[in-house]
Design a binder for these strands. Sequence first.
DNA 1: ATTACTGCAAATACTTTGCAATTGT
DNA 2: ACAATTGCAAAGTATTTGCAGTAAT
Lengths: 148, 148
Amino acid sequence: MNSNPRLNAILLKIKKMGYSLTPQRLEIIKIISESKSHPSATDVYNKVKELYPMVSLNTVYKNLSMLASLHEVKEIKTMQDSVHYDGDISLHGHAICEKCGKIIDVEIDEFDFKRFFETKIKNKLNENYRIRNYGVEFYGLCGGCDKD
Amino acid sequence: MNSNPRLNAILLKIKKMGYSLTPQRLEIIKIISESKSHPSATDVYNKVKELYPMVSLNTVYKNLSMLASLHEVKEIKTMQDSVHYDGDISLHGHAICEKCGKIIDVEIDEFDFKRFFETKIKNKLNENYRIRNYGVEFYGLCGGCDKD
DNA sequence: ATTACTGCAAATACTTTGCAATTGT
DNA sequence: ACAATTGCAAAGTATTTGCAGTAAT
């Protein structure tokens, strides 16, 4: 195998689900599982092109959507433009700069959040609402943009 | 004046900022400040048309964007389609159904959240990051869709 | 009178679809 | 060999832009 646990987990699920593994797909998975910059589909596309110049944007979209439907990447909708993808599916929040659009991770302790959720929020939801994913965003101005 | 405090607050800010108040604008503000259903721009457009059949979708977009930039409505990006607007700018979360797209409010106690934020999250952020808005989303299946 | 707002049409941006050719298993 | 995936082109949606005419203060 290799040393990236996210990559391995995704490849395993791909195999388990009976999907095939093309070079383009592998490269897309590598990029998204290693990236810390929450790239858009176009960002990923430009990276894949370095290795496979013939790849189409469409292929990137299809693969990222597939990974999202498998819950192996998280989609982030910002206020300003396209969807961004996050290969880190662990619990964490995002601080999104309203000016430059940069997205940075905000560490959220899983234990703390779960306790907050269980004690303060869960009972506000309809009993049979089945939660599958959380999103916690902070909108504002990052250090760089706050100066202006 | 009238009995809708959100409406009054928005009208006051409009005036303070020196914007003018057209009938279409007033109607858009009325709709968004009274609605509890998190409508999209097109939803609002269809409602405005009942009173002003000649209104353009463009006008609706412009007004909703203006209100968002004034922080008088909140934009909600769902996973599936267009932006939805929320005239309730008080602290609360949204549960978004991944199947039918329905958005329901989730009550979050301001005191509890602020304490959680202050003690557990704030110190994870860069010191000079200026937060202006929060977003808390729960993605999953609503009662109706969970049956299928 | 001046400035902002509206409505129309066209443009742009992002994402999806249809399909023939190709590739992975 | 078979089914899934790719790349291309075209279509679809959501949103924005430019601008002349109109309305608000």
